[in-house]
Design a protein around this nucleic acid. Structure first.
Lengths: 333, 333
DNA sequence: TCGATTGCCACAATCGTTTGTGTAGAGTGA
DNA sequence: TCACTCTACACAAACGATTGTGGCAATCGA
């Protein structure tokens, strides 16, 4: 714990009367105390002096030599979004366990911004990339594939690329089954951003489950929009305007659901009395307002995303994972 | 845009028939096209070839030589918190403008975790540090002051250290004045975590404003707790249990306010009919549920925090800044 | 016309690690 | 006893930039 660690490998070696190479090998050996690179006695001396002097390797010198940075880039649409923030926490946690440090960037779901952010991360010589903002068609991936940095997708999937996501199709089904079980007939769907697998899959699962129960979902009962409260409000207003009041609503995102709830309240409508409402993700606020919702394993998605990435970085073949969601029944449906 | 940029400074120089030093100076000169380090002709040749080949300097080699990393560390209690996520976005944005890249870490408001995260950032040789999790007494700062890395506080202040915060005292006053103007007498305060300036200052401003209107706030009407929905629920329950139903409530955080709203709803109480409610920060959800709240300039706090940091890194003297909040009246009060 | 300046550029040391290659001595087996 | 294999290290060459120093022409001032 000295002033701004100025203790170097060479310094250590000198102090110990050893050569830097030996000290380096011992310090880097995972075996630690009983590294095979030096005598037990020497091992001990190196380790203790290093910790005494608070030696911390200069990551730049090391990276320069090894051409590995120990950095993992993460790009998300927006960190303000609780869902992505949670996923990132999972990534960060797992990254730390594997000795990496994660660096995030917001793409705002804007291709230009996306490319700029990715480039900036590349310039930092990241060892791998985790993408949380990839559309279903994978259109933002072309620039990345040209460089040959390993990457994996999280939250949103795109066919042909390794990803870890929630099983959104199943999630949609859970919501559909539940609502169908409630005996409703006229239902609205706040579908989120089209082109994203989260929307596409949840929508597919939902409509299919409804169909199996003889409930049909005309296009006029579906509205796309943002995944946030504002997006939910807006979509809700449009549907209300065009098709009147429904018996039930499925919003593919809790925030959108809460936005919808606000709009309903304006009209003097409340859930579940006037209309059943189910959301998606189970964010803390859902608990706060008693929202019935589909819980997605956000944190796990992040963790496993990172793990999948280290696999691909190690050159091992990987396959995408889908984590199961779970229906959480509260009061709104 | 070649494969994983393997083009180096030396390579560029060779290609151009120049020495690396010249190329380096020109490339690093902010003057760009008309750098004074080489002839106009040479300047042009260097710049164009560099961009043609997609040359990106190896930041590790550069950092090794210059002992500057271009990295700014940011530690926040939790990125899941919308407020901190927004502040971070501000930091990140301003950092990019100044040529830095920001790296975040969650401390969870846990001293052990805090120290570990800071250490990890230090090991990465960050050039500066932005702290969003400092308690009023500055107790988490001792380890940091020992190293001599420049740092600034954001969101929460601590006397004697440079910080940029919301003028929370004023924010508290705004809430107090507003509620007093509504003619209420029995009011509750959900004060958040004690020991944090955000709580302390908002509480002080609020109670003083009330006092000026002859309204007193006994200790039994104040509850501390987390800054999230859960914390708000819990605190609300305790107060309700101990002191009955109030006429008004000020929660120092929107999420806590929404949590309280949920608890009120359970009891069949609603705002503003049964009880007036005002929150703090003006997060998007506040708009969604019609919450009257004090808007704090979160994004700006982040931006200016970074700017204050670059000032101190440049060795210039700085002083703390307090940004003014603004009352946003919606429906709950 | 001559010394001084300026413009333009090259040399070479250096930052702190990592890692391929050597090597002296101790131990081992036949 | 001899040829070998280990053990336990040391040497030295990278990695890719930055930067102090220096040199050679051309130009300038007086």
């Amino acid at each position: 714990m000295s002033k701004r660690s100025t203790v170097t490998l060479k310094g250590l070696a000198q102090e110990l009367g050893l050569s830097p190479s030996t000290v380096s090998r011992v310090l880097n050996d995972a075996a630690g105390e009983d590294s095979r690179w030096a005598s037990p006695e020497t091992n001990r001396r190196i380790l203790t002096l290093a910790s005494e002097l608070g030696y911390a390797k200069n990551p730049y010198a090391a990276s320069l030599r090894t051409a590995r940075s120990g950095l993992i880039g993460v790009v998300v649409p927006r960190l303000q979004d609780y869902v992505l923030a949670t996923i990132y926490e999972g990534v960060d946690e797992a990254a730390a366990e594997h000795g990496y440090v994660a660096v995030v960037a917001n793409s705002l779901d804007n291709p230009v911004s996306h490319d700029a952010r990715v480039r900036k991360l590349m310039d930092r010589r990241i060892d791998g990339l985790i993408l949380g903002d990839t559309p279903f068609d994978g259109s933002t991936l072309t620039a990345i594939e040209r460089e040959d940095v390993p990457f994996v997708l999280v939250n949103r999937r795109s066919p042909g690329h390794p990803s870890v996501t929630c099983n959104d199709y199943l999630g949609g089904r859970l919501a559909g089954e539940h609502l169908a079980g409630l005996g409703v007939e006229k239902v609205f769907l706040l579908a989120g951003k089209d082109r994203m697998s989260t929307s596409i899959d949840r929508t597919a699962g939902f409509t299919e489950a409804l169909a199996e129960h003889g409930i049909e979902l005309p296009a006029s009962h579906i509205a796309t929009g943002g995944f946030d409260a504002e997006g939910g409000e807006e979509a809700m207003r449009r549907l209300l305007e065009a098709s009147g009041v429904p018996e039930a609503i499925f919003a593919v995102n809790d925030f959108a659901a809460i936005g919808a709830l606000g709009v309903l309240a304006e009209r003097g409508l409340s859930a579940p009395e006037d209309v059943k409402l189910v959301g998606y993700n189970d964010t803390p606020l859902a608990g706060g307002v008693g929202l019935t919702t589909v819980r997605s394993p956000m944190h796990q998605i992040g963790r496993q995303g990172l793990e999948l990435l280290v696999e691909t970085m190690a050159g091992r073949p990987v396959e995408s994972r889908q984590l199961d969601p779970e229906l959480v029944i509260r009061t709104t449906a």
